[in-house]
Design a protein around this nucleic acid. Structure first.
Lengths: 252, 252
DNA sequence: CTTGACCCTTACGCGACGTGAGGCCCTATC
DNA sequence: GATAGGGCCTCACGTCGCGTAAGGGTCAAG
């Protein structure tokens, strides 16, 4: 069942030359060669190619990809989860760009000029190299990462109870902090806010501080949420929101 | 109010070298030069730069960008709407990739191997040159495009209130469906569930059906949520959950 | 035994800059 | 007014991920 270059290229939607290139630089060397020197790709080569293309799609330089895939501690599932995460970050960026387009359109229609800063807001805070750093970070502390990743692995039905319990516990901690008279702007409260955010990120993926702040505000705006949270402790919703906002504002 | 290269670079989040390059190839030549030969950028240069960066972000080669911006029939608003459209296509692609990652993860966890075709499905149907073709097409039939684009154009800048209202409306629709005696497994109810999911994705990013189902279960598991939802209509929480689950199970 | 589709290697080209090198300009401080 | 440090200029070569021949073997079908 070995495939030739052009067959693989067709399958993967890439070019023969690209496959040659990957072979040249040692990124993807076919396991076999025919008598006449033809490259022969097996199933495992295809899997590797899929990974290569995924990372490529995410903007990694080929050399990086080789390093990642070559890592003896490489864990396919962890990698896939990482890819997922990064794709979501991309989605966020695209949304930001769409909003920027909309804002520009609006300002044109209203005839109000944008400030220079506004014009480039969206381009500025994007660091394309961030991905690579993140990857290295993640792959650096492989041990710790693996552990935490293992937990996320299966989202069994009953696990949702655990998730909920964890969320409740954090909220209880916030309630306690409030009861203890700790200001929402206090580092301890902010740490709890951050803990909450991390909790969201762990289970629900992606929640930058910006959005977390928004979440806090939404809790306030929606009477149903407020009531609910305040049932745990009156004023907790407002307290929580303050803590989220404070946490969003610090460290930047 | 003229700016120097490094100032512009900082503003736009690009590099001085890039600006030099754009000048070299005639893509963005600053209107002025100081006595000493320093490049001086004016407001209009910044606007053009913004456009350049937008198109670049969309993957256009610089030469193409020069052609587009140089077109005497160039209409900024039409261009922005086109950019919007293309960004949304990108978002779709990213979602497809996310789903591909999810499918791969699932097949690993279930131990079922994917076929070769499945593995590359998502890469195959992506044509990076499509954008350019599309651009030319669009610039050809400007009239028809304008009309349809008008609808897509504006999106309010603020507000959580609108978001909340939208969410409430969907929930109200679900309550109505329930009141009308429509089964939660009925296509109409599932459509509402899907609508809710899409709503979440639009504003809160990412919520695959798997997670949506989990959300429904979480609503049920948490007494506070259940009470809240049921306040709108008794039993709505359970109904909603059923619809989410049904929706998650179909179409796959 | 030829034809045409496929494969090989070698090598140069290109787009969008990064990265110096070498030198002028400009303000600030001694 | 001399010098230091930062910013600006113009070459010009390097890089990355291939595209694109060039020149030549391989293989199944007719």
């Amino acid at each position: 069942m070995a495939l030739t270059v052009s067959q693989v290229a067709k399958l993967a939607g890439t070019s023969v030359r690209a496959l040659h290139h990957y072979d040249e630089i040692g990124l993807l060397c076919p396991t076999g060669r025919s008598e006449a020197g033809y490259r022969l790709y097996e199933q495992e080569d295809l899997q590797r190619l899929q990974q290569v293309l995924f990372f490529k799609e995410l903007g990694f330089p080929l050399e990086e990809i080789a390093r990642i895939l070559g890592d003896p501690a490489f864990d396919l599932r962890a990698a896939l989860r990482m890819q997922r995460q990064m794709l979501e970050e991309r989605a966020v960026r695209i949304r930001a760009l769409i909003e920027a387009v909309d804002r520009t359109l609006q300002s044109i229609e209203k005839g109000t000029a944008m400030t220079k800063e506004e014009m480039f807001e969206v381009f500025g805070d994007f660091d394309p190299t961030k991905y690579q750093d993140e990857a290295e970070q993640r792959w650096g502390e492989t041990d710790a990462y693996r552990e935490s990743a293992k937990r996320t692995a299966r989202y069994g039905k009953q696990d949702w109870q655990k998730i909920k319990a964890e969320g409740d516990a954090i909220q209880q901690e916030l309630a306690d902090a409030m009861a203890a008279g700790i200001a929402p702007t206090d580092a301890r409260a902010m740490d709890l806010a951050e803990k909450h955010r991390k909790y969201l990120e762990r289970w629900f993926y992606k929640c930058p501080r910006e959005m977390h702040r928004g979440l806090g505000e939404m809790y306030m705006a929606d009477a149903r949420f407020t009531e609910n949270i305040d049932r745990l402790r009156p004023g907790l919703a407002a307290y929580q929101r303050e803590a989220f906002v404070a946490n969003a504002n610090r460290s930047e």
